[in-house]
């Protein structure tokens, strides 16, 4: 599960992104998408997906009847997302925007949920904080935020093992794409600092994936 760094390789060919991510996760990335949707999406709820990529989480939420807007900077990934069929009962719109542009799209207290998968680790810490603070104001009271991203295992030995397994993938990705992903750290603390309540986290896929959730008080 250390191989999410290959995401950047796959981004160079967005048409193959979904299949590649699925292969790299041993076919289990769908469990993460479904878990996010399970927490965040209910029929007719307005949901924002930050860094939606090819739209897997957006559409998982729409399948549950939510009215979802997916935003991403990468226009090619959005083209792939728009080509996918929107499930009956829900709706999905994809827009080219950054996380700090949420305020241009949504008024205060207008969203029932904000979700994000494999996007926060691409932002600087300052951008993450800004996105969290803005998301808080756009959520209705009681609205939920769910952020899923690559994380390092919590215990020392497993973290070491994780890093050793990750190293060759990181090197190979650098050689092919000159970039890499970084595990996300300190997210739940920053969610609390931004003002979210009931912040909890769960780990999936052998501890290498973190799903953090919270509510607007």
């Amino acid at each position: 599960m250390s191989s999410f760094v290959w995401m950047k390789v796959l981004e160079s060919t967005p048409e193959r992104y979904d299949r590649g991510i699925s292969m790299l996760s041993g076919g289990r990335i769908g469990e993460v998408y479904q878990r996010i949707a399970e927490i965040a999406a209910v029929p007719a709820r307005r949901v924002l997906d930050i860094g939606c990529g090819t739209g897997a989480v957006t559409l998982a939420c729409a399948t549950r009847g939510a009215v979802v807007t997916g935003i991403d900077i990468n226009a090619e990934m959005l083209d792939v997302a728009r080509a996918k069929p929107v499930p009956e009962g829900g709706s999905a719109v994809f827009l080219q925007r950054a996380a700090a542009e949420i305020e241009d799209l949504f008024g205060e207290a207008s969203l029932g949920a904000v979700v994000s998968c494999l996007a926060f680790s691409e932002m600087s810490v300052e951008e993450q904080d800004y996105a969290l603070e803005t998301a808080l104001t756009r959520l209705v009271p009681g609205g939920v935020i769910v952020i899923a991203d690559e994380a390092e295992p919590a215990t020392g030995f497993r973290r070491l093992l994780h890093r050793l397994r990750r190293l060759p993938v990181v090197v190979a990705t650098y050689l092919v794409t000159q970039t890499s992903t970084r595990p996300l750290a300190g997210l739940t603390g920053r969610m609390r600092a931004a003002g979210f309540a009931e912040v909890t986290q769960e780990r999936m896929l052998s501890g290498a994936f973190l799903i953090a959730r919270g509510r607007r008080p």
């Binding site: 900077i73 990468n74 226009a75 080219q96 925007r97 950054a98 996380a99 700090a100 542009e101 600087s124 300052e126 951008e127 904080d129 800004y130 000159q178 970039t179």
Partner: peptide, 24 residues
Amino acid sequence: GFNVWCAAGGGHLTHHDIISAMRV
């Protein structure tokens, strides 16, 4: 972490990133 020329050409430095930085 890329230089301006490579980042802009590769889609890693866009107006969205600059808008973000200005707001943040």
